[in-house]
Simulated scan of single mutants.
Amino acid sequence: MGMKNDLSFIIGDVMNLYEHQSSYSPNLPLRGLFYFASLYREQIEDVKQKLYTNVPLHIPFPQYIVFYNGTKQEPERQELKLSDLFVKTGKEVPPALECKAVVLNINFGHNRELMEKCVTLREYSRFVAMIRQQMSGELPFEEAVERAVDTCIRQEILSEILRKNRSEVIDMILTEYNEEEFSVSEGEAEQYVKKVLDNLDE
C-alpha cells in the first residue's frame, strides 16, 4: 500500500488535504504529517536552494480534514493531534512538531449544517445509508448494492453520477468490501458479518 491521500489542492494560500475514512484511527495526524511533508517537498522543489538562505521561505497554510462514515459511533466533530501520539517524557516543553486532523462524521443525520451547505456530500451520505439499509436484509451483498444504486437513481440521489458511472461505482464498492472481508480470517467471517449488521441496526 503506497502513501496516498484522497485529495489535496491549494486554494489561495491554503493547502487543503482531504481524506475519506470508513474506519476510525488515532494515527490520522501521523499520516497527515507524512502527506504534508511530501506535498511541501514537492511544493518547494524548484526553489529548494533557498532553504539555506537567510530569506524566509513562505509555504501554504495547512488544513487537514477527514470525512468519516464508518459504522462505529463517533462524534460530529473531533480534533486529533499528533502530539497525543508522542511518548510522554514528563518534560514541560512543547513538542517540536504538531499536526491536527479534523474528523467530521458524515453519516446520514450527522453534521446537518455542513450537509445543508454541500448537496453532493448530503446525497453521498444518503447513498451510503441506502446501501447499509439494503445490506440489512437477506439479499446477497452484490444484489444489495445494485438495488441501492437503482433506488438512489430513481430518488435523484447522486443520480447523475450513478447513471454515468454505475458499473464503476458498484465495482468500487464491491472491491472495498472484498478487501475488508479478506482481512478477516475464515473462522471469524460469520462473527464479522453479524457485527456489521448489528452496527447497521444501531
Rank of each mutant, 00 (worst) to 15 (best):
P75N: 06
L162P: 00
M115H: 10
N5A: 07
V102Y: 13
P75M: 03
A189P: 10
S183H: 12
C118D: 14
P26R: 03
I157G: 06
H110S: 13
E179K: 12
Q73R: 09
F61N: 08
L80F: 02
Q155V: 11
K195D: 11
K117F: 11
I170Q: 12
G12C: 02
H110A: 14
V87R: 15
E98D: 15
K194V: 02
P26Y: 04
R77S: 08
A129M: 12
E176V: 15
F141P: 00
P62D: 00
E186V: 14
V128L: 06
Q49I: 14
L57I: 06
S167F: 12
E19K: 01
D6K: 07
G2N: 03
V87G: 08
H20E: 13
D171Q: 15
F141A: 05
E42L: 01
E138P: 07
V145W: 05
A96C: 12
E168C: 09
Q134G: 06
F108W: 11
S185G: 09
F182H: 06
L114S: 13
E116V: 08
E176K: 14
N165P: 02
F67N: 03
E202C: 12
I161E: 15
R163C: 15
I157K: 01
Q21D: 09
P95I: 14
L80N: 03
V55N: 07
P56Q: 11
M172T: 11
P75T: 00
L17K: 00
I10M: 01
